[in-house]
Amino acid sequence: MFTIVAATIFSAAFLLAVGTIAWMFALYHQKMAAALLFEPIPQTPPVYHIRITRNRVRQPARGATLSAPALPGSALAA
């Protein structure tokens, strides 16, 4: 009796596994075929063209004083 129960459980588990594999194969057949036939696109190293622009500093007019007056040498030494 034990042998019949064990054989039945083993057969049911085996059929469940085979059914799961067949179901997964049928469900994902197109994706597996696409993955096997996929040819990767050759990658070339990217080339970056960088252009840096900056505004030039305007020279102050000759008569205008925009900055603070120069300090004497003793003030810098203190």
Rank of each mutant, 00 (worst) to 15 (best):
A26F: 15
A64R: 09
L71R: 04
T8G: 02
E39P: 00
Q43A: 08
F2H: 03
F2E: 02
E39V: 06
T3M: 01
Q43H: 06
F10R: 10
A78Q: 07
T44G: 05
Q43R: 07
L36W: 11
Y48T: 05
F25I: 04
R62V: 10
A33E: 08
A61V: 05
A70G: 05
P45V: 02
A33G: 07
S11C: 03
F38Y: 11
R62L: 13
T53D: 07
R51G: 11
A22V: 06
L15A: 11
R54V: 11
F25E: 08
T3A: 02
L66R: 08
P72N: 07
T65H: 15
S67F: 13
Q59T: 14
P45A: 02
G63R: 10
A17K: 09
A75Y: 10
S67C: 13
A61H: 14
V18T: 03
L36S: 14
W23H: 05
P69T: 02
Q30A: 13
I50G: 02
R51Q: 15
R54W: 12
R62G: 09
T65A: 13
Q43S: 05
L37C: 15
R58F: 13
V47G: 03
A77D: 06
H49F: 09
S67D: 10
Y28H: 10
L27H: 09
A12N: 04
A7N: 04
S11E: 01
R51Y: 13
P46A: 03
F2L: 01
L15Y: 11
Q59D: 10
R58N: 12
T65P: 05
A70K: 08
T44Y: 08
Y48Q: 05
P46F: 00
P40L: 01
L71S: 03
G73M: 07
A61I: 06
A12M: 03
V18I: 04
G63W: 12
K31Y: 12
I52R: 15
R54I: 12
G63A: 12
Q59Y: 14
M1T: 00
A77E: 07
A75M: 15
A78M: 08
Q30K: 15
M1S: 00
P60D: 02
A61L: 09
V18D: 01
V5S: 01
I50A: 04
V57S: 14
T44H: 05
A13Y: 06
T65S: 14
R62Q: 13
H49T: 10
A26S: 12
P72M: 03
A17I: 07
L76Y: 08
L71Y: 05
A34S: 14
L37W: 11
I21C: 07
A6E: 00
A70M: 11
T53I: 06
I50L: 08
A34F: 11
V47H: 08
A75D: 12
T44W: 03
I9M: 06
L37Q: 14
A68V: 08
V5N: 00
Q30W: 12
H49L: 09
A64Y: 04
A35C: 11
Q43K: 06
Q59P: 04
Q30T: 14
V57H: 15
Y48P: 00
Q59I: 14
M1L: 02
N55D: 12
A13K: 09
G73R: 10
K31S: 12
P40C: 01
M24N: 10
A75S: 13
A34N: 15
L36N: 12
E39D: 13
